[in-house]
Design a protein around this nucleic acid. Structure first.
Lengths: 142, 142
DNA sequence: CCTTTATTTAATCAATGTCTTATTTAAGGG
DNA sequence: CCCTTAAATAAGACATTGATTAAATAAAGG
């Protein structure tokens, strides 16, 4: 039942309804009813989405009389984002510092180069092994 | 069949095996057999994971004789990361620029000048929240 | 008390995902 | 040519997810 936190977080994010709920909550906290309103979907369905988001550590729910106030919490996203950052460090050209640099319109590639295939070896730096061996070998038989 | 790119990317990331493959590929490109080796899992299973990653725009496969070289591609992660950044902009204290800033040990709480007020100005009705109505409203009555 | 409002729980069912083994395609070597 | 290696595809078992309707819980209010 309890998957690792990272899987839960990404899995929770892999649904447009849940992402919309998060987007909504990024503006202001809201009750379940308010969150459900814009969707053509039953209340229990929304309730379940919220449970998924809560289990993933993306939101918290606090009881207020007979309504539940939902609010974002940074816990889940933090890990998820840092994983992506580590993976993305390989290119590093695509977003981040250099991205802004490129956006400025500097001529970085323009002269005559057709540098489509220039990078094949970047193999040296492997300080960042994540969960590769251990976390992935989860083989649960039936 | 074709879900939106963001859902595909997050869904692809929501599996430890696939994340381990990405982590491996972030060091160097590899063939399917090399990627499969560390896992106690059949080759077709790995092949399927790779297909998921490819469909999500996270890797590309190029044919080399009878083996396939797999390599990371920034396309998928880019969108995913920017979604998370937008959502996370609500707290903004938890990670990102300010996080590194705080890590430096500067006195931020004492001086009330400049940390909080960058989020309420943005009026973010932008691209991240819009797919909710259309994408989520799939209902079929039975 | 009984009703209204807000939300969760339960039972159910269709659709999807994730493995497996078996078979197939493709490229190279004896 | 046949055989081996590398990988994809096919078909099937099994678990998980995502939605539904119906019923239950909990707080406020007439």
């Amino acid at each position: 039942m309890a998957r690792d936190a990272l899987s839960q977080a990404f899995s929770a994010l892999a649904d447009p309804t849940r992402r919309a709920i998060l987007a909504r909550l990024s503006k202001a906290e809201a009750t379940v009813g308010e969150l459900a309103a814009p969707f053509d979907m039953s209340m229990p369905a929304i309730s379940n989405h919220l449970k998924v988001l809560e289990n993933a550590g993306l939101i918290v729910r606090e009881v207020d009389a007979q309504r539940r106030r939902c609010r974002l919490t940074p816990d889940g996203l933090k890990e998820a984002k840092s994983f992506m950052t580590e993976i993305a460090a390989f290119w590093e050209d695509s977003f981040g510092e250099l991205d802004a640099f490129l956006a400025r319109g500097d001529d970085l590639v323009g002269s005559d180069a057709k540098q489509t295939e220039s990078n094949s070896e970047k193999d040296q730096d492997d300080g960042s092994s994540n969960e590769s061996g251990g976390g992935a070998g989860t083989r649960s038989h039936s």
